[in-house]
Structures are given as structure tokens and as C-alpha cells.
Nucleic acid binder design. Structure first.
Length: 605
RNA sequence: GCCCCAGUAGCUCAGUGGAUAGAGCACCGGCCUCCGGAGCCGGGAGCGCAGGUUCGAGUCCUGCCUGGGGCGCCA
């Protein structure tokens, strides 16, 4: 068992039990789980009894006898057909909480086997509006990068923007038609759809334009300096717009992370040549293909991955293969994550299969694995693809502006509601100013707060459901201050901060363990100690939703605690200090967890 | 036709092969003179269908049904 789970009782208990199980059958899995009957339960005796051909309760009894748990457990009970239930000693839990409080990593392990992880995400197209699919990819990828980095891996962010291909012929010609200056204006303001559609319209309507466009593609591919310069204008103006959206979203991506399709262009001939040399290449209908086993088309025939088209041009498959090689060979990737929509599943599987056939994704230690971190579509409240009323895809900048507007309104509503309540309470004169209540005091940036809440709500809504499923985009639900939402967690955090502010108290010395007398104090403590495992599970499954679930449970545990255990009004100084410590660690974990999701945690709301 | 994904409460979703399937919203009935109502307690209602594996299946396997997506030179 890795030694870095120092603060997690589950890991400590697991280690002890493993030793006990080993005395009966080396390597037998204790199957230790959280339990609703006790703190934890071990189910491993049942399976072990089966393989040993002995009565389960007898085996469980021997496990209990072999385990030394006196320093950890209050009770160890044999139950049912062969379950073993463990209740931890409260003093042990309290010591672990003290260790957690003194740990600047809050129990999040630093991996002892760091690897280079390339995360391919966001990937908008040049001269095309960013859409909700880019949004999902950006948000999910951003959180995964933060988590992997925190765990001590070397994270390489790659924004695989669509900056190459045949459409650029018509885009460049259109740019020339409208004039460079005008084109730059349109693009940098984010009017990308109009630009693209106008180019498309000319292409479809105007023979001469279409012909120019085709010639332009050839010029671009042959590196004609003028053409390349114009292409750069398109790219850089689009990137400027992407940057604005990223800044608005508060994600880690920068221009340094851009590794567009064009980057791989010089490597494509070699990719094809090497596939040929390896004997994997088959010419079919004039196209150069690889047929990875297990893929068939609608007629049941082998399905090709086309690396070079019959006209000699390279398809995106060639680019994707070149990217795999580059990431493994140049960047030293041990793991490559593709945060890409679920519909591209087959294409990616085929690319990975071909890369494996070619030996570009070596197996085993020191090798590299590629994973498709797939996500579902964003649906409107009607359950259909998320579109505007007129049926167009939603512009990302509009969506974020609406998030800000709605968050501002929601915050105003709350301030008004609290103000009204305060007014009613002060029916008799001397209406003391609400002061440090819902109203952020002067000096707090209200638009910054609205941004934190609005953007946080959008992000949390996206991250909190199982990413592979389609998810329903619903403003009212995501901005609610009740339930499993971003604002709820932010509010939980802000309220804890207010305890310290209103009480005028300092954070207690973390080295003194808390007193865990009330059940709610104990339950909260156990939840606090699970943080590291929650973060680890995000990296293992590439599922930020696991962290969301954890944080929501933590906030719920805190609510129960706060309901039952007065903090500032605690009966005595020792209890007060102890509860302040629990509150402080809760707030720190909430803020830290939200940060790993890419969500701000304001101290006041 | 083939392949992939999903199907859990009225709605939105949790649920690492383990005991009695959990939340939130909505609905109904109570409670709290509270450190900022992120309230608290109680109630109804659910694993698409049929087999199988297993001591044990929402979870694994097979078939079917429903919905979404993909299936040769777009990315």
C-alpha cells in the first residue's frame, strides 16, 4: 500500500487487513468498503471462503483474529454471512484529522510513479465559432490537467486546433475579397460563423471563387509565402478570439499550448512511408489505407483508416497518427488523453489500433497508453441537441454572457431576499445595517463575483454528471443555491469563511487533534479524510464528476454538523476550538476541490 | 444491416460484484425564536424486458426493446 495515503483511514486499515488475509491466502483481496453498518466493512472473507471451501464465518473469524487493529478500531464485528464491520476509534480519527489539517496537500497523495500525460482538449476550429462541444472538452480537460498536475504528473496541455485542410482555400479567398482589415475585425470580434458561412456561400455559388479556392489550397500546401501569410492572419485572429473565451472561462490554456493540425503537416509523408515499410498499407480505390482488425463497414467489409486520399492529400487520420508519434517520441508521453466527443469514438479507436500495430504505442512499462475521454452531447431542456430557437448552434460567448447576467440576477435576488428578511426582523426602529450579511461589502468586485458564480455554475453542471452521458443544459437548475450545484458549494464555502470573519477568530493550531464527541463531528471528520482518495479517483477514471460527488457529500456532512454542533457558541473553549478546526479544514478542502474543478471559491457572496 | 454509448423515483442524477438501491428538484405533512435557510424530520414512488454466470447482480455475460451516435477519401 502506498505510504502517501497517510491521512486516509481506509488505506491504513486496508494495509492491516491485507496482512491478515495474507496469513490465510497470500494476495487475497480484503474487499474493504465504506459501510452503512459501521465505518468500514470487509467482504473478502466470503470470496475467500468459497475458494478455500470453508464456512465464511469461520474464515472471517480467523481474519479478525490475525489482524492487529486495536490502535485503529473501537470494535470489529463479524456480521451476517461473513462480513466484518469496523468502527474506528475516535481518537485515531481525531489524530488523522490533525495530520490532515497540518498537511498543505490536504491528504492528496503525490504519486511515486509520475508519468508524462498529454491531454488533448478544447480543439476549436480556426474561423469557426466555438460550440458547446468545445466547451465541454475545455472544461473537462482543464479539470483533468489540474488534477493530474496536483498528483505530481507532468502534464502537457495540447490544444489541437483545426488550422489546416481544404476549407482554408476558400477562407483565404474570402479574406482577400472582404479585405484583410475587415476580415481581421470580423474574426477578432468573434463573428466567426458569419465569416465562415459567407466563404462557404461564395464557394457554392461562384464557380470562379471555387476555382480560386482550390488553387489556393495547393498554394498553401506548397508553402507559398503570400498564402502562408494570409493563413497566419486567419489563425492568429481566431486564436485571439479563443483566448478571450478562455480568459472568460478561467481555464489554464494559453497560446503555448496550441499545437494545431498544421504542426503535424511536415510529418505526414513519413507516417505514410513508415506504414508502408511496415507492410500495413493497402491501396484501395486509389486511397492508401490501413485495415485494423475488428472494424467493419455497413456491408460487413473491413473498414479502412484512410491515411492518404486518392488525390494525394492527407486525411485527418494521418494527422492523428503523426500526433501520437510526436507525443510519444518527442514529448515522452506515457499516457495520452483525448478529451473528445463520444461520436468520434470509432475514429479514435481505429487510430489507436493502427498506432499500436505500427508499434507507436508501446505496451508495458515505459510504454504509452492512449485513452478516449469521451463525453456526451449537450441537450436543451427539450431533450434535443442544444441549439438556439432559430436552430443555430449556440455561440459560446453569448452563452457565457448569459451566465454572467443570470448569476448577477440570482445574486441580486438573494441580496434582496435577505435584506427584506432583515427589514422585517427590525420592525422596531434602529434598523442596523445588514453589514456583513448577504451584501458583499464595498470593495468586493460584484461583477467578479457574478463571474465566479455564473461560470462556476456552468462548469459544475458540466463536470458533475457522468461525462459519457448526454447532459441537459438547464440554467435554473445549475444556478440554484440548493442541491448539487456550483453555487451551493461556493455558498457553503463562503459561509464557513463568515464564521471566522464574524467570530473574529483565528484558525486554530492544527497540531491539536479535535474532540470528536458528537456523531456529526465524527462523520464530518471521516469525510474530510476521504479527500485524497477522491482526487486520485478522478485521475484514475478521468472523471471529474467523482470529485463533484465528494464535495457535495462533504458540504452535506458539514451542514449536518453545523446544524447540530454550535461552533462560535460552543459550550466550552476546547469544543469551540475543535469545531473551528473542523470548519477550517472543510473550507480549505472545498476551496481546493473547487480549484481542481477550475471553479473559484469566493470568501463572501 | 453492423458497431459504439445510454436506459435507476414524476424530473435531473449518484451508486468501486456485497447486507434494506441513495441524493437534489417537484409534491404532501410536521419542526426549528437559527452562528448568513446551503434549513431539519417524516411520506409516496424506481434498477427497460428475458435469460445466464455467482454464495451474492443496478453493477459481469447473451438476446431483445427504446433513445442517441457512428459506419471510405470532412474533422
Amino acid at each position: 500500500m502506498p505510504r502517501w495515503f497517510v491521512a486516509d483511514p481506509l488505506a491504513i486499515l486496508s494495509e492491516r487487513l491485507q496482512a491478515a488475509f495474507d496469513t490465510l491466502a497470500p494476495g487475497a483481496d480484503p474487499v474493504l468498503r465504506e459501510s452503512d453498518r459501521a465505518d468500514y466493512q470487509a467482504n473478502g472473507a466470503l470470496a475467500l471462503a468459497k475458494s478455500l471451501g470453508r464456512p465464511p464465518r469461520e474464515v472471517a473469524g480467523e481474519v479478525i483474529a490475525a489482524a492487529s487493529l486495536d490502535d485503529l478500531c473501537e470494535t470489529v464485528e463479524l456480521s451476517g454471512p461473513g462480513f466484518v464491520n469496523f468502527t474506528l476509534r475516535s481518537d485515531f480519527v481525531a489524530e488523522q484529522v490533525a495530520a490532515l489539517a497540518g498537511d498543505h496537500r490536504l491528504g492528496v497523495p503525490a504519486t511515486d510513479r509520475p508519468v508524462t500525460v498529454v491531454v488533448d482538449y478544447s480543439a476549436p476550429n480556426v474561423a469557426k465559432e466555438m460550440h458547446v462541444g468545445n466547451l465541454r472538452s475545455t472544461i473537462i480537460g482543464d479539470s483533468l490537467c489540474r488534477v493530474l498536475d496536483r498528483l505530481g504528473h507532468r502534464v502537457v496541455r495540447e490544444n489541437h486546433i483545426g488550422d489546416w485542410g481544404t476549407p482554408f482555400g476558400m477562407l483565404i479567398e474570402h479574406l482577400l475579397d472582404v479585405g484583410e482589415q475587415e476580415a481581421a475585425n470580423e474574426l477578432s470580434v468573434g463573428d466567426l460563423n458569419r465569416f465562415y458561412q459567407a466563404a462557404r456561400a461564395s464557394f457554392d455559388r461562384d464557380q470562379e471563387f471555387a476555382e480560386r479556392s482550390r488553387r489556393r489550397v495547393v498554394l498553401l500546401q506548397s508553402g507559398d509565402p503570400d498564402t502562408v501569410r494570409l493563413w497566419r492572419v486567419l489563425v492568429s485572429e481566431s486564436v485571439r478570439y479563443f483566448d478571450r473565451v478562455y480568459a472568460e472561462l478561467g481555464v489554464l490554456l494559453t497560446d503555448d499550448d496550441i499545437v494545431g493540425e498544421s504542426f503535424y503537416n511536415p510529418m505526414l509523408p513519413e507516417v505514410v512511408a513508415d506504414l508502408d515499410r511496415l507492410g500495413l498499407l493497402v491501396v484501395d480505390d486509389g486511397a492508401r489505407c490501413v485495415f485494423p482488425p475488428g472494424f467493419t463497414n455497413r456491408r460487413g467489409e473491413p473498414l479502412p483508416l484512410i491515411v492518404q486520399k486518392s488525390d494525394g492529400g492527407y486525411g485527418y487520420a494521418a494527422t492523428d497518427l503523426a500526433a501520437i508519434r510526436d507525443r510519444v517520441d518527442r514529448l515522452g508521453a506515457g499516457r495520452i488523453l483525448y478529451v473528445v466527443g463520444a461520436p468520434q469514438s470509432q475514429h479514435l479507436s481505429m487510430c489507436m489500433a493502427v498506432a499500436a500495430m505500427a508499434g507507436w504505442l508501446p505496451k508495458g512499462p515505459g510504454g504509452a497508453v492512449a485513452e478516449h475521454v469521451a463525453f456526451g452531447s449537450v441537450l436543451g431542456a427539450d431533450g434535443k441537441m442544444f441549439k438556439t430557437r432559430s436552430g443555430e448552434s449556440v455561440k459560446l460567448s453569448d452563452l457565457l454572457a448569459e451566465a454572467l447576467a443570470r448569476a448577477t440576477a440570482a445574486l441580486d435576488d438573494r441580496a434582496a431576499a435577505v435584506g427584506a428578511a432583515a427589514g422585517a426582523g427590525a420592525a422596531t426602529p434602529a434598523p442596523a445595517p445588514a453589514g456583513d450579511r448577504a451584501d458583499p461589502p464595498r470593495g468586493v468586485d460584484r461583477s467578479g463575483l457574478a463571474r465566479a458564480v455564473g461560470i462556476g455554475a456552468v462548469k459544475y453542471a458540466d463536470l458533475s454528471s457522468d461525462r459519457v452521458r448526454d447532459y441537459v443544459f438547464d440554467w435554473d437548475r445549475m444556478l440554484a443555491f440548493e442541491g448539487d450545484t456550483g453555487p451551493y458549494l461556493q455558498y457553503a464555502h463562503a459561509r464557513i469563511c463568515s464564521i471566522f470573519r464574524r467570530g473574529g477568530v483565528a484558525v486554530p493550531d492544527p497540531s491539536v487533534p479535535p474532540v470528536l464527541a458528537a456523531p456529526a463531528e465524527r462523520a464530518l471528520s471521516l469525510q474530510l479524510l476521504r479527500y485524497g482518495e477522491a482526487v486520485s479517483s478522478v485521475a484514475a477514471s478521468s472523471s471529474p464528476s467523482k470529485l463533484c460527488t465528494y464535495l457535495y457529500d462533504l458540504a452535506s456532512s458539514f451542514t449536518a454538523f453545523y446544524e447540530q454542533c454550535p461552533v462560535l457558541k460552543a459550550p466550552d473553549e476546547v469544543t469551540r476550538r475543535s469545531r473551528l478546526l473542523l470548519a477550517d479544514v472543510t473550507a480549505r478542502i472545498l476551496a481546493d476541490g473547487l480549484e481542481l474543478l477550475g471553479i473559484e471559491a469566493p470568501e463572501r457572496m
